[in-house]
Nucleic acid binder design. Structure first.
Length: 437
RNA sequence: GCCGCGGUCGUCUAGCCCGGUCCAGGAUGGGGGCCUGUCGAGCCCUUGACCCGGGUUCAAAUCCCGGCCGCGGCGCCA
């Protein structure tokens, strides 16, 4: 329908054939207007007694909201928004609702989110909701495009794993042929594996699972992580450069390409603003900024809380005209064991987080690739190297210096469109309470 | 996991604080009718709800307790 309206001048007076959903019927008795919708747009159909064949008039009686219909007719000029309409000649109703609609797609955004998710198949028919997923697919495509162009190879790693990855986050247990197993909370070990295995530069887009009972607008128990890992880096700044390059690429494409522009316009939001040089602020400097600019105190050696992240996001937006900021050098105590510690200050690490419009969307850093140090780090975290033997073995036979990062797809979608709740950025969200549909 | 707030027609809500005027009001949707140029079409008729279980009271949508469900904040995280 979108194409049809685009080419309307050349198609005027021609016979067209269309299928879609009935978005709404304006019934005047002997004159009836039907708005037909498909994923590309809407067009008005006219059924007029005396003009439209009797059979088609009869069929149009059955064309209720959200019925699936196909029509043939003539495209002609009309005083509608699109400037055209279809004078119906044939109509067939392929399917119609068997019960009153619990949620009207055209009006679904006025329902509360819980109701929308319960009847998600109706909610997503709302063109504004559809666009979330058009944008999300586009973001993932840009990610693949960017890293492929930088010589990264796409990998596909196990999601059923024999050991929890990071020690901190909770994992979902599964029974694997009688053996205890888990759903992967991160591809971390396997992307490092891939670098060490000689692929050097890898990326993956895939689901990750977190068994943390968060009740917030920014957490899901299942989400999509866009991961990279790269070997032979000089420092973790090389990793930041890759991430920065990607986000810049994304922001530029957002301004240039037709699809994101259309989506952003519907949501009435500005494209991401990313300056030539994205600000990079060591965490210890961030403490000072928050103290002096906002009188917000973060205990030394602690991670930022969500308010701190929000304020820092505000600060860089005003000061550097940037929607993105990298916070660097996190304390060893808040980072996982595989993170490389600073050579001169072992309580701090070569790691970073990236905040997009005040929300953490990426975490990364340089990894410890030296076997003995890695074992020390495991012990330092109070864990038993025996439990990580399968992973530690990777490092025994020539592991290059390397680092990487993981970006949250749903969070990027959410922040790009300024959605209020991350659940809006998933077709079928999983949170501690929601398992169906 | 801890803390706070909330559950009224299919949907979105009014009523709850200050119990009786509520066999619960409105909008939208469903069903029916009128209407030949609408575009949130209009007009008329109709349908349909107090989350569950206890308690207090002459009387409970309204007050109390428990359960279930939802929302948000925190910790934590993408």
């Amino acid at each position: 329908m979108g194409d049809l309206i685009k080419d309307k001048d050349s198609l005027l007076g021609k016979e067209v054939s269309l299928c879609g959903w009935v978005d709404r019927v304006r019934d005047h008795g002997k004159l009836r207007f039907i708005m037909l919708r498909d994923r590309t747009g809407q067009i008005q159909l006219v059924v007029k007694q005396g003009e439209t064949p009797e059979e088609a008039v009869k069929a149009s009686n059955e064309a209720r909201d959200e019925a699936v219909i196909c029509v043939k007719g003539t495209l002609r000029k009309a005083p509608t928004k699109e400037g055209v309409e279809v004078a119906v000649r044939e109509m067939s109703v392929l399917n119609r609702p068997v019960e009153p609609l619990p949620l009207l797609p055209r009006d679904s955004l006025s329902a509360i989110l819980d109701t929308r998710l319960k009847f998600r198949w109706l909610d997503v028919r709302n063109p504004k909701v559809t666009k979330v997923f058009l944008l999300q697919a586009w973001v993932a495509q840009k990610f693949r495009e960017y890293f492929s162009s930088k010589g990264f190879v796409e990998i596909f790693t196990p999601k059923i794993v024999g050991a929890g990855t990071e020690g901190g986050a909770e994992v979902f247990p599964v029974i694997y042929f009688g053996k205890p197993a888990f759903l992967a909370q991160s591809p971390q070990f396997y992307k490092q594996f891939s670098v060490i295995a000689g692929l050097e530069r890898v990326f993956e887009v895939g689901p990750v699972f977190r068994a943390e009972p968060h009740h917030t607008t920014r957490h899901l128990t299942e989400y999509h992580s866009m991961d990279i890992e790269v070997g032979f880096i000089q420092s973790y700044y090389d990793v930041i450069s890759f991430v920065e390059g990607f986000v810049k690429h994304l922001a530029e494409a957002m301004r240039k390409e037709e699809l994101p522009q259309r989506v952003l316009q519907e949501y009435n939001v500005e494209p991401l603003e990313i300056p030539g040089e994205v600000p990079k602020i060591p965490l210890r400097k961030a403490y000072e900024i928050l103290d002096s600019e906002f009188k917000k105190h973060i205990p030394y050696g602690e991670d930022l809380d969500s308010e701190g992240e929000k304020l820092l996001g505000q600060y860089v937006k005003e000061r550097f005209k940037s929607d993105l900021v990298f916070v660097t050098e996190y304390p060893w105590k808040v980072r996982p064991f595989y993170t490389m510690r600073k050579e001169d200050e072992p309580d701090w690490t070569y790691s970073f987080d990236g905040l997009l419009r005040g929300l953490e969307i990426v975490t990364g850093g340089q990894r410890e690739h030296r076997y003995e140090r890695l074992v020390e780090n495991v012990k330092d975290k109070g864990m038993n190297p025996k439990n990580f033997e399968f992973y530690l073995n990777f490092f025994k036979h020539g592991a290059p210096p390397h680092g990487g990062a993981g970006l949250g797809l749903e969070r990027i979608t959410m922040q790009s469109l300024k959605l209020e709740n991350i659940r809006e950025a998933r077709l079928l969200p999983r949170d501690p309470e929601t398992l169906l549909p």
